[in-house]
Write a protein that binds this DNA or RNA. Structure first.
Length: 574
RNA sequence: GGCCUCGUAGCUCAGAGGAUAGAGCAACCGCCUCCUAAGCGGUAGGUCAUAGGUUCGACUCCUAUCGGGGCCGCCA
């Protein structure tokens, strides 16, 4: 039940009736007709802009249309009143019964309240994290992981068929570097001193890998030339790193449906296939790029390369897909990977990139557009930097000094729930300040606890109600405006889910939960002044059952919302 | 130089083209013999960076400018 959608349907039906009667011309489109909560509650329960958007195409003044619409809508039993206001808004007041229906519906639907049909039959692939398998995940990856995971859950909640996917960059030069770094640790394990040359990965996390290599190979590899051990060590180290990464993801509660190996693309010839596919569309050619404008790299010299005509699909310049030595560029397997996604039949693709990969958005969009002939939309969401603080002071990180903060560091210190919630209380494309101390602070300064606290309060009350052995009722007693306000907020949930899903913006869920918790806390405190508004009424199971329905419904929605964010709703906070 | 992104209260941030732009923090004033005060109510705080444009209507869309951040052939 989405009362905004329901009322919109009523309005559309009424408009169609007006067309049938000749009160409106027949060639109108209802696409821009919106029904939304009014900013000012004094304006009623919901408002529609129908008269204003139809005024011009219908050739009638907005207020004339609004009056006619109002008259008809007022006849609907669900609508208590319809008033024309301002430039042509139609403010609707609903039959108060509707709020009782909402509460009953929430309790009845439980975990499914807010589920939407908007994604029915739509297969969407969400690719996120996709960190190089060369070390543990760090803070930046954490944000992408949380964001992608919440977005995937949100889309699933909205009815989409979602696949969560991780692209393993195990085919490029960086895993060779990993192998060489691991080999030094292997030498170290065998009592030799490691030579961590410039460019190798210095991190301690490779020491156990060196030990494991010694365990497996003894001293056999020590005197062999690189060519003889590189592949084995690389595969071994890559697999170990992916094991590490899976553990990190598990710490955060992130589950992937599918890990896709870049290396597998080389083995299957999919890259050649993908490029052939582009070639068929006349999008591959040999050519020389213009030097970049402005600052020209010192060693720049014109070279003939194999290029993808990405400008034909909205990119700024064509992109090389082969290096001058004939090897594929990084972009080529990416094209193949996305082609594979298209071939697997996804209707929509979503990629989560770090902001530093923003320069790749246009070329990836061009590739998917070309490979799917524009049929499959690709939405690339960029997650901005996370700035770490400790008690208000910037927390310095240095890769060189080895003091970069890992996902594990963060989760160990503040826990997965806080990590997730904090990272979702900001739009993905806005930089995020993350303060280790403030994020675990148990105060209203901290939205996580504010929302959790609302849930805990409700559960506490419900436990006490259990002891009264009452007949749980779905029929809520809603008299006070504070109660109605909470019920109205609950009614907005299905609409919020659709908006958040459509925009690929899970942070809206976090902000909604904060608002809902706020309405709830206000109602709770009103019980101090007006004891009749309390949820528990000692010796009166009937009154208790009626009053407790509303908070029960709130707990359901908070639980559902936190579920999307991947945060555990707590039973108790003491 | 080009592209992307951001610019909203002192601070941190919300805001599907809709009405008088909203929260939290900080400041000030109140509320616990009462279901969890980790809470609530109130006061104060604004040229939505700037200038144009699109239209019934712009914080929102377009153009230009200013400012912060990111990226910019054969690295990933």
């Amino acid at each position: 039940m989405n009362i905004f959608a329901d009322i919109r349907t009523t309005i559309i039906e009424t408009l169609n009736a007006m067309v049938a009667e000749g009160a409106l011309p027949g060639d109108l489109s209802w696409g821009n007709v919106a029904v939304e909560p009014p900013r000012d509650p004094a304006h009623g329960d919901m408002a529609t802009n129908a008269a204003m958007v139809l005024a011009k195409p219908a050739g009638k003044p907005p207020r004339v249309i609004a009056e006619a619409l109002a008259e008809r809508l007022a006849a609907d039993p669900a609508i208590a009143s319809a008033e024309v206001a301002g430039p042509g808004f139609l403010n609707l007041r609903l039959d108060p019964r509707i709020w009782h229906d909402v509460v009953a519906e929430v309790i009845d639907a439980g975990r499914t309240y807010g589920h939407s049909g908007m994604g029915a039959g739509v297969r969407v692939n969400v690719e996120y994290v996709s960190a190089n398998p060369t070390g543990p995940l760090h803070v930046g990856h954490t944000r992408g992981a949380v964001f992608g995971d919440a977005l995937a859950s949100l889309l699933a909640f909205a009815g989409y068929e979602v696949t969560r996917e991780y692209y393993i960059n195990d085919g490029g030069a960086q895993v060779d570097v990993l192998a060489r770094s691991a080999f030094e640790r292997y030498r170290e394990a065998n009592g030799l001193s490691p030579e961590i040359a410039e460019g190798l990965y210095p991190g301690d996390y490779l020491i156990p890998i060196g030990e494991a290599l010694k365990e497996k190979y003894g001293r056999d590899l020590l005197d062999k030339p690189e060519a003889e051990w590189l592949t084995q060590v690389r595969d071994f180290a890559t697999e170990a790193m992916m094991g590490l990464i899976r553990e990190d993801l598990a710490l955060l509660g992130v589950k992937m449906d599918h890990f896709f190996s870049e290396k597998s693309l080389y083995d299957t010839g999919l890259i050649e296939d993908a490029i052939k596919e582009l070639d068929k569309k006349d999008l591959i050619y040999r050519g020389t790029l213009e030097p970049p404008k402005g600052k020209v790299p010192e060693d720049w010299e014109p070279r003939e390369q194999t290029l993808f005509r990405s400008t034909a699909h909205g990119d700024d310049v064509d992109r090389p897909i082969k290096k001058s030595d004939g090897a594929w560029t990084y972009f080529a397997p990416d094209i193949a990977y996305h082609w594979d996604k298209v071939k697997r039949g996804f209707d929509e693709l979503i990629d989560i990139f770090g902001a530093d990969h923003g320069g790749y958005v246009k070329r990836m969009n061009a590739a998917v557009s070309a490979l799917s002939d524009g049929r499959v939309p690709l939405d690339i969401k960029l997650t901005q930097l996370v700035k770490l603080y400790k008690n208000g002071e910037p927390f310095k990180m240095s890769k060189r000094a080895g003091t970069f903060v890992t996902l594990r560091d963060v989760v160990d210190q503040v826990g997965p729930d806080v990590t997730r919630f904090v990272m979702l209380t900001r739009k993905n494309d806005a930089p995020l300040d993350f303060d280790f101390d403030k994020s675990v602070e148990q105060s209203k300064d901290n939205p996580v606890f504010y929302v959790q606290y609302a849930h805990a309060r409700i559960r506490s009350v419900m436990r006490k109600a259990e002891e009264m052995h009452l007949d749980w009722s779905d029929n809520a007693s809603l008299e006070d405006e504070a109660e109605i306000a909470v019920a109205k907020k609950l009614a907005e949930w299905p609409r919020l889910v659709e908006i958040a899903a459509r925009n690929h913006e899970p942070h809206r869920v976090a902000f909604y939960l904060y608002d809902l918790a706020s309405e709830f806390h206000a109602l709770w405190n009103k019980g101090n002044e007006k004891p009749e508004l309390r949820f528990l009424h000692e010796g009166d199971p009937r009154a208790t059952a009626a009053k407790i329905a509303l908070p029960r419904a709130v707990a359901v929605v908070i639980s559902n919302g936190l579920g999307i964010l991947g945060v555990t709703p707590v039973e108790e906070m003491r």
